Simulated scan of single mutants.
Amino acid sequence: MENLKNKVWFVTGASKGLGLTLVKRLLNDGYQVAATSRTIKSLVNEVGEQSENFLPLEVDIVNEQSVKIAVAKAIQHFKTIDVVVNNAGYGQIGTIEELSNEEVRSNYDVNVFGLLNVTRQVLPHLRANKSGHIFNISSIGGFVGSFAAWGIYCSTKFAVAGLTEALAVEAKPFGVNVTLVYPGYFRTSFLSKDSVLAPKNPIDDYLEARQSQTAHQNEIDGNQPGDPDKAINVLIEMSKEQNPPLHLFLGQDAYDISKNKLEEVSSQLENWKNYTCANR
Rank of each mutant, 00 (worst) to 15 (best):
V85K: 00
Y275W: 14
D109V: 07
V169G: 07
L26I: 10
W150Y: 11
N86K: 02
S51I: 15
E52R: 09
T21H: 01
Y90N: 10
S189P: 13
I257G: 00
R105K: 15
G226S: 03
V160Q: 00
E165L: 07
G142R: 03
V176E: 05
S239C: 09
L22N: 01
A171D: 03
N260Q: 08
L55E: 08
L269Y: 06
N218E: 14
N28R: 14
G114R: 04
A88V: 07
N260P: 02
I96Y: 13
A231S: 06
I75L: 10
G175H: 07
T188Y: 12
G94V: 12
S106K: 12
L18Q: 00
K130M: 08
G30V: 09
D82T: 09
N45W: 12
S239Y: 01
C277A: 11
S37Q: 05
T164E: 02
S212E: 06
I220T: 11
G145R: 01
G94P: 11
L57A: 08
E103K: 08
P199W: 06
V8E: 02
G132I: 00
K41M: 13
C154E: 01
S66A: 13
L99I: 07
N177V: 06
R25W: 05
V62W: 06
G162Q: 06
K259Q: 09
T179Q: 06
E102S: 14
K261G: 01
V8H: 01
L167I: 08
N218A: 05
S37F: 07
Q213L: 12
S15P: 06
D253H: 09
E58M: 15
N107K: 06
E49G: 14
Y275E: 10
I69M: 11
G151P: 03
P225D: 02
A88S: 13
Y153V: 04
S131R: 04
I140S: 00
T164G: 02
S131W: 06
L180F: 05
S192D: 12
T80F: 03
L207M: 11
N129R: 04
K200V: 11
A215K: 10
L246W: 11
F54T: 10
L126G: 00
S139Y: 04
Y31N: 03
G141A: 04
S212F: 05
K24W: 09
P199R: 06
V84T: 10
L191S: 07
M238W: 03
S212M: 07
E241A: 15
V83L: 08
I134L: 08
S51N: 15
L116I: 15
D204S: 12
Y90M: 14
K157A: 04
L57Q: 04
G222A: 12
P228H: 02
S106F: 03
A88H: 02
M238I: 09
A254T: 05
E49N: 15
E52H: 13
L57R: 02
F174Q: 10
Q92L: 12
Q32S: 15
L18K: 01
V85N: 00
S42Q: 14
I203G: 11
F10D: 03
N279P: 03
G141H: 00
L250Y: 00
I203D: 15
E98H: 13
G222Y: 05
A34T: 07
V110H: 09
M1W: 11
Y182C: 03
S37W: 03
E170R: 12
N86R: 04
D229E: 08
Q50V: 10
T39C: 14
F135E: 01
D194E: 13
L248E: 04
E165N: 09
